[in-house]
Every structure is written in structure tokens, then in C-alpha cells.
Computed example of a mutant assay.
Amino acid sequence: MIQIQKSFKDQADNDYGTLYLVGTPIGNLEDITYRAIRTLKEVQLIAAEDTRQTRKLLTHFEIATRLVSYHEHNKQASGSELIRLLIEGQSIALVSDAGLPAVSDPGADLVKDAVEAGIKVVPIPGANAALSALIISGLPTDRFMFTGFPPRDKKPLAEWLTRLSRQEGTLMMYESPHRLKKTLDAMLEHWGDRRIAMTRELTKRHEEAARGSISECLAFLEENPPLGEYCLIIEGAASGSGDAGDNGEIWWTTLELEEHVAHYENEGIDRKEAIKKAAQDRGLPKREVYNAVNR
């Protein structure tokens, strides 16, 4: 059954409150909107991912609204209580540490529960790190995909990269400084030397964007150790060898791995590079293709 929400009309069938998703600054406090400040002042409750971080924001803008905790580790108990308060008629603002709530954080679960309960969910737009990084990256912006945080462990990371290998749109993801090099090494192995923009400290005093190939960025990190949280913008799969033909079929799907590699060798490419290109086409680890064709 379809559910229609009229965000700025009273719900005739209930007296529920409204769940506001309020965008907050990602660094520079001047990036908050007038509407966000007004909403935070008018709601009965603010649910925050990190109350200590949010309290600094509220103090700066002299907002005295009651603050409660809602995060990954208490979302089940806290979420059900917030839904109960919304049903009773209280309006609540949900905020994350920075940027838009419900993007790579447990706020998405609260939104889902609110929608299922017939509660209005209203966005209060604001800054977003991924989109801010995208528009300064110099990479295509006509089609893009946000992928969140890459998996931490080697095998899940390899599988994740394989699934994304044929995405033609620009890829956007977050990564922590202590895992950055490992993730870039894995990208280079699975995707080849794509163009990338490494951005950090967006809107802050030390805002930085490092643009180049993955290998160039890895070399840069050897001289400039990672600092702060990163947003990575990576070009999508190249249109060419892996594209579908006129009949919609990818040209190499009927070939065995050895034939796929031989195709590139017949074009004058050396065997090592041919194996690399075949691996990229198929979204396979280069080592797996190498082992298969050199048995």
C-alpha cells in the first residue's frame, strides 16, 4: 500500500510529531543553515550520535533543547523510545556528528521505523562531505555512487572491490587514516591505476585535496602520512574493453580466461599487462587470473 507524506500539512489521521533530519556542519560552523538552527530550537528533543560533539554545536548557537543519545550501540532501545515519543506528539531532530544524518550511520534505521509507523520525516538539508569532495575532485559528476566505508578485512575488501569494479560512475567513499594505504593498495591491485582525489579536513583550516593516480597518491602518502578522516573520489570503470556491444553482450563473456588474455596479447600487449587488463574486465584479482592461465 502506497504511503503519501505531505510534509507541511497536518496529518488528519494522527497527532504524531515530526522527525527532522538536520544537516550539521562538517567542519566550519558557518555552514549551518538558518533553518537548521530554528528547527533545533523548536523541537522537543535532539537525538545525537555523539552528545559531547553536538553539545559544542548547541552551545555555540545558544540552543537549549534537551539532548539524548542515539548511536549504533543503543539504537534498538533508544530507537523504540524515540518512536514512542514521536507517536505521543513530540517532534525530534536527528543529527549526526557532522553532515547529513542517516548517511552511513544508524539514523537510517530510525527513519525506516518512523516511516513504517506513519510518522512524517522531514529533511533539513546541509553540508555533506562526500558531495563536497565530489564537486572539487575534477572527476565526472554526471553519474556517481556513494559506497560508505570499505570493509576492514582483506578478503571482504577484495570481494567488495570486485563487486564495484564494473561501476562506470564515479565512486565516493569514506576511509580512516590508519586504513587508507591498505585500501589504496587493494584498489590498485583490483582496479588498476585509476584517477583519484583524496580529500580531508573539508571546510576546515587544513582542507586538502590530493589529485592524481592511485599510485601517485600512494607515493604522496609515503612522504605525507595520512591525517584526519578521508573522503575518496575514484573514477569509475573505463568505458572500452569491458563495455557491452551492440547486442548488449560484453565481448569477452564467451571466452575462457586464457583466450581473454590472448586477445590482448594479439593486440601487442605484453602478457603481464594482458593478465592485468583481463582481471580488470572480469573484476577478478590479478593474482587469480595469473594462476589460472599459468597452470
Rank of each mutant, 00 (worst) to 15 (best):
T39D: 02
L40N: 00
K9Q: 15
I136L: 13
T253W: 12
R143G: 11
T65K: 10
A278N: 04
K9T: 13
D15L: 10
T54E: 03
P25R: 09
G240I: 02
K112R: 14
P225N: 10
L110C: 02
L161V: 00
L218R: 05
K6C: 13
E267G: 06
R143K: 15
E81I: 11
N14C: 13
P106C: 02
D193C: 06
L131P: 01
D97L: 07
T254A: 14
Q76G: 12
A77K: 15
R66D: 14
L82G: 00
R166T: 03
R166I: 06
G192N: 05
V289P: 08
V122G: 07
A117H: 05
T253I: 14
V95G: 01
I119R: 07
K6G: 08
A129S: 15
R38D: 10
Q5E: 15
R179M: 10
K182P: 07
M1P: 06
K9Y: 12
L94D: 03
Q11Y: 09
E259T: 08
A210I: 15
T253L: 13
V289K: 03
G79M: 03
I233V: 15
D270S: 10
E49F: 03
A117Y: 01
N266R: 15
D97Y: 08
T39C: 13
P125E: 09
A274R: 02
S96F: 05
Y174A: 04
